Computed example of a mutant assay.
Amino acid sequence: MSRWLGLTAIVLVLLVVHLIVVSRDRTVPALAVARDVGTMQPIADADLVAIDLVPEHGVRFVPADERRVVLGRKPAFGLLKGTLLTSTSLKPEGAPEADTQVVGLRVGPGHRPSQELWHGAYVCVSPLPAVPSCDASSTGEGAFRARIAAVGTPEPGGAVVVDLLVDRETIRFALAAAGSGAILSLIGV
């Protein structure tokens, strides 16, 4: 009987060791590049493939369930087929494209809609004190349309810094508005 007890103990120890080894090699689905993607090329669904990956400490891979977040983003550098997609492989959202700049505009309370502003929203920027509108007849008056790149945390007094993506034609108006203040209004596109 002690022989059976010893054999059972050995089998249990081997089973526990096996479970520990298997659990350490558990894979998770991650995204890799299915074909070469250039730096100016938005990532499409056909550019991605899900792979099984044993996670390593320090490797910040993009999980396969974040596929929709990656679609449309541009790589920070050219990606070759088979490259594991990491958080540093992608340009940050709101990063300026060629011929655009990001301008921070401090907007005080009462100078923006009461609803929350969000990344990607389009706004009309009307510089103070003239406050021109963004309609078609206002060209040259200093008002301009822009897309929001980011929205900062509101200050205790209610002001908030809004980062705007502006093109080369409107940069001088954006810089003037950043210096003198402006009113933001949400616009449809």
Rank of each mutant, 00 (worst) to 15 (best):
V70N: 03
G120N: 07
L164Y: 05
F61N: 00
V161W: 03
R147C: 04
V21G: 05
G110V: 14
E155I: 07
P129Y: 02
V125K: 01
E66N: 00
H119V: 10
V123I: 08
P154M: 09
V123Q: 05
R168P: 02
A44Y: 05
V123G: 04
E97R: 15
V11E: 04
G188Y: 07
V125Q: 04
G38Q: 15
R172D: 15
L80W: 04
I20H: 14
A98Y: 12
P55N: 14
E93L: 11
I148C: 06
V70C: 01
L5D: 07
V131T: 15
L71F: 07
S126D: 06
I148N: 06
P75I: 01
T27L: 02
D65Q: 05
D163S: 14
V162G: 02
A76C: 07
V21N: 08
V49C: 06
G78H: 03
L53D: 03
V69F: 04
T8R: 13
G140C: 11
S89E: 00
T100N: 11
R24M: 11
P42L: 14
V151I: 09
L90P: 00
H119T: 08
P127A: 04
G78Y: 03
G120Y: 05
D36F: 12
V49S: 11
V33R: 00
P75E: 03
L128Y: 01
A174Q: 09
M40D: 15
G188P: 05
E93M: 10
G108R: 10
D47R: 11
A9F: 09
E93Q: 14
V33L: 00
V160P: 10
G78F: 03
L186Q: 11
A149G: 14
L12M: 13
L175I: 04
A44G: 14
A136Y: 12
L80M: 08
L12D: 08
A143H: 03
T100W: 05
D47T: 11
P129D: 04
L80H: 12
A30Q: 03
R3C: 04
P96N: 07
R112H: 07
T27C: 05
L84W: 00
V69Y: 10
G188L: 05
P75R: 01
P55M: 09
E56R: 13
V21I: 12
S133T: 15
T39M: 11
T153E: 13
V166W: 02
S180I: 00
M1R: 14
G158L: 04
R168H: 09
C134V: 09
F61R: 00
G179I: 01
A95C: 08
G6W: 10
A121L: 09
P42F: 11
G188A: 13
I51A: 06
F77S: 09
T88G: 00
M1P: 07
V107F: 05
E56L: 13
A143C: 09
E155R: 14
V13L: 15
V22E: 14
P109E: 13
A143N: 08
A76T: 01
G72C: 06
P92W: 05
L175C: 01
T39N: 05
V69E: 13
E93A: 10
F61I: 01
K91P: 02
P63M: 01
T88V: 04
L128T: 02
D25I: 05
G38P: 05
L19A: 13
D52L: 12
V162F: 00
R73A: 06
G110C: 06
V22C: 03
G181A: 10
P154E: 07
E141C: 02
D25P: 01
I148M: 08
A143K: 03
H18R: 11
I171H: 04
A46D: 15
A34L: 07
S138P: 04
